[in-house]
Structures are given as C-alpha cells and as structure tokens.
C-alpha cells in the first residue's frame, strides 16, 4: 500500500445546469479494493468515465497510474462498464482474446489467456459458443473476464454484481479477491452493501455528485451509533441513564408470535460500550427479556443513514 494508483482532486463535471460530479477528492492506494457506493444517479459512473478519460472533467485533476490521462496507460487498466454488452456473433474465447489484444497482448498469448481464464472460472465448455447463446449472467462473466484478461494493474468494475445469481456473485467475489491477492487494485461500484462489506478496504460514498464519506469500512460503521434492540413487557426508558447508553426509544413491534403486551425498544450506545452491562442491569432489575439483540452496524444502515432521504427524493423526482 505504498503508492497511490489513482487520485482525483476537486474533480467536477457539469451538463448544462446539472452538476453530475461536484469537487470530488479521492486517493486510492495500490493493491486495495475500493468501493464506490451511492444511490442511482449519484455520479458514480460519470466519475468512473472521467477516470478512464472517456469524458473529460470540467474542473480538477485526475492522475491514473502516474499519468494525467488514462489513455496514456490504457493497457494497464481493465474496465467493465455499467451497461454490459458484447458482440453477439463472436465466440466467447475470441471476444476475451480480442479485448486483451486491444490492450497490447500478442494475439497468440491473448488466445491462451482467454482459455486459461475460461477454465479457471468454470466457462471452459462455452469457449466456442457464440455470445448470443449465453445467458445474461454468463455473458456478464465473460465480460468481466474480458476486462481482466490483460492482467491490468488497475481494474474498474461498474456494478459488476448486478444481474448475477448468488452463486455467480460468489464467483465474482472470489475473482476480486484473486485480483487483490495478485497485487492488482480494484475499484468497483455497487448497490449491494454486503459485497462492499465483505470485499472493500475503503469506500467512497457519493450522493448528488458530492462525496459524503471516504474511509475504511470500520470508519463508515462508526458514523452511526451501535444499537441494542430489546423486547419485554416493561418500560425500559430508564436505561437511558446507564453509562454508555446514548438514547432509548420505543419502536413498533415487527413480526408475529409474540406475547400480548410485548414492547420493543432501541438503545443507541457509545462505540466501546459493553452490551453485557445492559443485560446485567436488566437481570438485576427483574426485567424479563424476550429478545436481546446486539448487532454491528451494517453498511446498509450507514448507507440509508447518509443518503437515504436524498435517494428517496431523487427516485421520486
């Protein structure tokens, strides 16, 4: 993690009056897996296109692998766009080989590499099929393989998980881990927080073109307080006076199969509060708990917390 493979400083892009990306700063260390998160229309794809020099920023500077333009180092970058597409009439091996040879790999080596990747990721039997005969998910896997066939130092995957079934999502997760183990840097955008949670070391969260968070997954989780959920027949508002408890509020009971009169409470606690203390206090005060739930804050919660309102507004605009 010694050097930076990508840095953006004050990068903006406007289309007429609409600001797609607003003064984004970013620095991605070599060998990391970096997640671009954000609601629909947040500016993730525009940012990625600017990184790749497919479109030019109106302001700011981008440095990719030590160069001012990705086109200068295009053979060292792999890219999977958000909207996937392949030449329908081409054979699977030929298309991987073609994209690899566009990236500077010799045609013979590109063909060998295509077959090697297809075997590695379970598509060997389809090597000679045409793209049009593949299912959508399989076509997407082929496109991912096309984007990494030339062993790029920087791999940018725009929504790589969309359209894949859970098994293939796992295959893709493994592929990203393989790339990381190989020392390659991976940037991917996603809506599915679990992938980001499992794979990413660092995250960028943007909404309406602006950065709202940039840091590690733990740092993201720390943004919103940890939470304990209790269910009992009693009023436990007094737990708010306990050391380490920030607030207590009653929420509506969700789900079925509870005793009549059951009430549900949410306790927000400080970062390092020991939940055992809350449990001990309940025993000592004769509070009979039917549920005690202490879970780590998920990225999903962070996402909803940070961009939920804006995303909802955006979707209904």
């Amino acid at each position: 993690m010694s050097s930076t493979v990508l840095s953006l400083s004050n990068v903006s892009k406007r289309y007429g009056d609409f600001t797609a990306v607003n003064r984004i700063n970013l620095s991605i260390p070599k060998g990391s897996v970096y997640g671009f998160l954000g609601p629909n229309g947040a500016g993730k794809t525009t940012t990625i296109r600017m990184i790749l020099d497919i479109i030019r920023p109106d302001e700011g500077e981008i440095e990719v692998l030590g160069c001012k333009s990705a086109m200068q180092v295009r053979d060292r970058i792999g890219y999977l766009p958000e909207e996937k597409g392949l030449y329908k009439k081409m054979k699977v091996w030929a298309i991987i080989s073609y994209f690899a040879s566009l990236k500077g790999i010799h045609r013979k080596d590109a063909k060998l590499r295509a077959f090697e990747l297809l075997e590695q990721y379970g598509l060997k039997d389809f090597a000679n099929s045409t793209v049009e005969s593949l299912s959508k998910g399989m076509g997407q896997k082929v496109q991912v393989l096309s984007s990494i066939a030339h062993n790029p130092e920087l791999v940018i995957l725009d929504e790589p998980f969309s359209g894949l079934d859970p098994v293939n999502q796992e295959v893709l997760e493994q592929l990203i881990r393989d790339l990381k183990n190989n020392g390659q840097t991976v940037i991917f955008s996603t809506h599915i927080m679990q992938h980001a949670e499992r794979l990413c070391e660092r995250l960028l969260l943007i909404t309406q073109g602006s950065k709202v968070f940039d840091g590690t997954v733990d740092e993201a989780r720390a943004i919103i307080p940890r939470r304990v959920i209790l269910e009992c027949q009693n009023d436990v508002a007094a737990l708010a006076d306990l050391d380490g408890v920030l607030s207590v509020c009653e929420t509506s009971v969700s789900g079925e199969g509870r005793l009549p009169g059951t009430r549900q409470w949410e306790l927000y606690v400080k970062e390092h509060t020991n939940p055992q203390l809350i449990l001990q206090h309940c025993f000592q005060n004769g509070i009979s708990l039917s549920r005690f739930d202490f879970t780590q804050t998920s990225l999903h919660d962070v996402f909803v917390h940070l961009v939920g309102q804006e995303a909802r507004e955006h979707n209904f605009r």
Partner: peptide, 17 residues
C-alpha cells in the same frame, strides 16, 4: 449502432481512442 446499443462502445473507448 450495434456497438452503441449494446454498450460495447464504452469498453472499446476505455481501450482505444
């Protein structure tokens, strides 16, 4: 038009000018 409608164009433009 095939490249445009299939969105192959974006991959191509990341590889060639």
């Amino acid at each position: 038009i095939e490249e445009k409608s299939n969105r192959i164009i974006e991959v191509l433009l990341a590889s060639v000018t």
